[in-house]
């Protein structure tokens, strides 16, 4: 693991842990509060106190027994994974070429991708919906995977391109001399080298699918693969009044799997190696 292992001074430790504590508090205070709210009975929702007077599982029961929320968590999982895999297949080759190969029109093409990043997504839902119904992607999981790529591909290409470009030069050429085709050089050498950033990006892509509401809502009905974010909205936020306890339960249920997945996925990071430099 490429990490600075210098003997740390006490000051550094204090500053480090202090900084960590600040950031953790910024994250954990709101999250902790809503986590505890998920166990409050309805009457206590707006009582400002951390621990419920009476612990209640009503909202949990409702979310799981009636709303079958765990089913939608599963849908979200599939939506996120599919989005990540598809993004990988499309963006990694593209970014590799932009990062390490020379060809005519490269800069122009790259700027076209930049522009795609700026597009106001909310205006895309109409053409998308019409097209998706027409080509039979409406209400299907692949349809969602494909739609999410609008968010994922431009940014994935960006970040991957920067990463590929900064990898040491000549590696593919070396691989090609030693028996690889251009494709195999990419596959055997460049891809493993980009593993940390690819893992990160797949994770971010996963989160796009996991969190998206815009397309997940527009491109599915109850007959199709609805994701957890849509159900949260429909069950707890979409009425004029918010079902706070149900919202908190669903938020917890939807928030924890990605965090666990990330912690597990970090096994990839731990295998990181010094990529740049010799």
């Amino acid at each position: 693991m490429a990490m600075y292992t210098q003997r740390s001074t006490l000051t550094q430790k204090v500053l480090g842990y202090g900084g960590l504590a600040v950031v953790l508090l910024i994250v954990l205070i709101p999250y902790g509060y809503i986590a505890l709210t998920a166990f409050k009975p309805a009457e206590e929702i707006f009582d400002v106190r951390w621990l419920p007077r009476a612990w209640s599982l009503d909202a949990w029961r409702y979310a799981i027994e009636f709303e079958q929320f765990h089913v939608y968590i599963y849908n979200s999982m599939i939506a996120g994974l599919g989005a990540a895999v598809l993004a990988l297949c499309v963006a990694v080759p593209g970014a590799y070429v932009f990062g390490r190969k020379q060809f005519r029109g490269k800069d122009v093409m790259f700027y076209i991708i930049v522009m795609a990043l700026l597009f106001p997504f909310v205006l895309l839902v109409v053409p998308f919906t019409i097209l998706w119904v027409k080509i039979g992607l409406y209400d299907t999981m692949p349809g969602l995977w494909l739609a999410y790529q609008v968010f994922i591909i431009p940014f994935a290409i960006w970040i991957l391109r920067a990463y590929f470009a900064e990898l040491p030069p000549f590696l593919e050429e070396c691989a090609m001399v030693y028996g690889c085709t251009a494709f195999k050089a990419f596959w055997r050498v460049m891809l493993p080298l980009a593993k940390p950033i690819i893992t990160s990006l797949m994770f971010l892509a996963f989160l796009v699918g996991w969190n998206d509401f815009l397309f997940s809502n527009m491109l599915t009905t109850g007959e199709g693969p609805r994701t957890a974010s849509v159900i949260i909205y429909v069950s707890a936020v979409g009425g004029e009044r918010v079902e706070w306890d149900v919202l908190m339960v669903m938020t917890l249920m939807a928030g924890i799997p990605p965090v666990l997945l990330y912690i597990v996925a970090q096994g990839q990071f731990l295998k990181t190696f010094a990529v740049r430099g010799h």
Partner: peptide, 20 residues
Amino acid sequence: VWRGVMLMPYAMPPVVVGAI
């Protein structure tokens, strides 16, 4: 673990975060 925790705000749909 801390890295996972850092991720939490982004691991929920933005609409939900807004409501919270």
